[in-house]
């Protein structure tokens, strides 16, 4: 595989996460009525990092945290070539009347978020839902969905591919960009 182009290196990656956590703290104060939900699987990695930073930067912050799997809510069931395998949902609280921060790593077509919003309905009626994403691919939306907190904006052709690498499974945190002809992982 050819190396992708690094669009966010280790140092800037950490800065971006810090900024996102501060923006969340700014909007949610003591998090009294807020819960954070990471979308399985890669959104959970981001959510856990953001949560660690919120706790470090704001000792008083107390909130519920859950993981949401959206496989059963996808709109491409029986339409895609290979079926997807579900991950676990670990959400042991209701979101009725709460402010929800939904976290995913890349916002692309918006269909994952649409599925997540329908999945959330099964856990109650939230007061508000916000979206936090590390990469926002602005030119490729299929649905009227936008992020409230964005790490980095990437404007590229549909065929290009953006990959977030985390230091738990890769040598270091970084975001790579693969142009159309090199997109295969």
């Amino acid at each position: 595989m050819k190396e992708g182009k690094i669009i966010l290196d280790k140092g800037k990656f950490q800065l971006t996460l810090e900024r996102l956590s501060h923006q969340v703290i700014e909007n949610h104060g003591d998090f009294e009525n807020t819960c954070i939900i990471g979308i399985q699987e890669r959104g959970v990695l981001l959510a856990e990092r953001i949560i660690a930073l919120i706790k470090k930067n704001h000792k008083k912050a107390k909130f519920q945290y859950g993981k949401l799997d959206i496989t059963f809510y996808r709109d491409d069931f029986r339409r895609r070539d290979t079926p997807l395998s579900p991950s676990s949902t670990e959400l042991d609280f209701l979101i009725e009347g709460k402010r929800v921060i939904l976290i995913d790593d890349v916002l692309y077509t918006g269909r994952t978020i649409q599925a997540a919003l329908s999945a959330l309905q099964d856990f109650g009626r939230p007061l508000q839902v916000e979206l936090l994403t590390l990469v926002n691919r602005r030119f490729n939306r299929h649905l009227p969905i936008k992020a409230d907190y964005t790490g980095i904006n990437v404007d590229s052709l549909d065929e290009a591919y953006v990959k977030v690498e985390w230091n738990d499974e890769h040598p270091e945190d970084r975001i790579l960009f693969f142009s159309a002809d090199k997109k295969k992982q």
Binding site: D69, T71, F72, Y73, F77, S85, P86, S87, S88, T89, E90, L94, S118, A119, Q121, D122, F123, G124
Partner: peptide, 22 residues
């Protein structure tokens, strides 16, 4: 594969709203 998928459905049927749109 059936067991792995059933694990996830078991979580679904223990929710207050026990339904998915698949």
């Amino acid at each position: 594969l059936i067991f792995h998928t059933a694990d996830n459905f078991k979580e679904v049927i223990n929710r207050p709203i026990k339904k998915v749109p698949s």
